[in-house]
Amino acid sequence: MSDERSQGVDFGDVEDEIENYDYPATPEELREQFGDRTVEYNDGEESLGDVLEGVGVDEFQSAEEVYETVMMMVGEEATDEGHSDRGAGTAPDEETESF
């Protein structure tokens, strides 16, 4: 990961600390260590502790698993509302040929 916003989520300065944490780690351990830190997304922000609360994961094996879980937990809040790639490349009046 990088310091830039990834899939709509910005971990800020806690990203390096998550990367360097000694894994495996439980959500409770990560909440204790980083719970007061904030992750930002397009429509707001939330403490990492709140995001990791009740994630349904017993143990994280890597920082990448933490990032993926956080991105999944903030879900649609992290993505641009009103943006959709659905139907991209097809004009509304354009007919498609069926084979």
Rank of each mutant, 00 (worst) to 15 (best):
G56R: 10
V70D: 03
Y21C: 10
P92N: 11
G8V: 02
F60Y: 07
E19H: 07
E28I: 07
Q61L: 09
L30T: 01
P92A: 12
Q33D: 07
I18D: 01
E76S: 15
E28G: 06
E97Y: 14
G56Q: 08
G75N: 12
E95G: 10
G8R: 04
D50H: 10
E77P: 00
E64H: 10
I18T: 04
V55E: 05
E32H: 07
D36R: 03
A78C: 09
D80G: 05
R86S: 15
R37E: 02
G89Y: 12
T90R: 15
A91Q: 13
M72Y: 11
E64I: 09
G54A: 06
V74S: 02
D22T: 13
E19K: 09
E32T: 11
E68T: 09
A25I: 00
F60N: 01
Y67I: 04
D80A: 11
Q61M: 10
D43M: 11
E95R: 15
N42E: 14
T38P: 00
S62F: 07
T38D: 04
L48S: 04
D13C: 03
H83G: 06
R86A: 15
V57C: 07
T26H: 12
F60P: 01
E65R: 11
E28H: 09
L48I: 12
A78Q: 05
G8I: 00
T90N: 13
R86K: 14
N42M: 12
E65D: 14
M71K: 15
E4R: 14
V70F: 01
S62M: 03
T38R: 11
V70E: 01
A63G: 07
V70K: 04
A63Q: 06
D16M: 08
E46A: 12
Q7R: 10
R86Y: 15
